[in-house]
Amino acid sequence: MIPSSFEYKRANSVSEAVEMIDADAQILSGGHSLIPALKLRLNNPGTLIDISKIDALKEISDNEKSITIGAGATHASIASSSVLEKHAPMMVQAAREIGDIQVRNVGTIGGSIAHADPAADWPAVLLASNATVVIQNKDGNREVDIDQFFKGFYETALNEGEIITAIRIPKTAANKNSVYVKFKQPASRFAIVGCAVALDKDGGNVADVRIGLTGVSESAYRASSVEKALSGNTLDDGLIESAVADVTEGNAVMSDHYASEKYRKHLAGVYVKRALRKLL
């Protein structure tokens, strides 16, 4: 229960934090992925750079075409955001499914996606929302399309010396009609399957759909085969049933003592169906 020794530095701005980073440093935001690992000594960084006091990172702002969520926004602040409830309800639904009250009060969206746990909730939702990740480094800012952000098992497009400052969620018709459903690992509360769907219908037909899945594979992914099968077709029970057949196609399915590969694959199909049915 006691981490190994490290140095602690508090950054008052992102630029200051970026200047402080070196190879042996880790960024401390909400700390709800990092501190548990430090306590178990699974991770022993030389320095922690605390960005949790930077107020500018905590804002959720409503812009014309998108909503910008500061990387330091807590899950709780997202869960209670009326603007997100209106423009991307899956964000609010996912936020409410993360951890517990105490975790949501402190854990941040930026910290979560930088950590990129294969069973975390945000990656699925952000993939479905077609978000943009705003990153700062010594040279300034850069933006990464969410489809390019999650690279693999705990791996992201973040380079050394970079800090996520914000996530932008576009105000699309699909995001307005979105949902997040989750089958929890009951002990850890992580997703065995978490499924986010953003879907726009043109009449009865699917005009735009993005489906993000987490917990299923070593990294969150978009269920492209399902998206393809749905696109342009009339959304009904029959279509949903046939579309999910290859929901894990191209992705190695994880397995553990609680949920085998076979079962997890089955659940992925069930949860995509459940999400889609909610949007019927």
Partner: peptide
């Protein structure tokens, strides 16, 4: 005023 797990926070924070 907000509930927090004090085992998951550093005293310096």
């Amino acid at each position: 005023g907000k509930a927090v797990k004090s085992c998951t926070m550093l005293a310096v924070q």
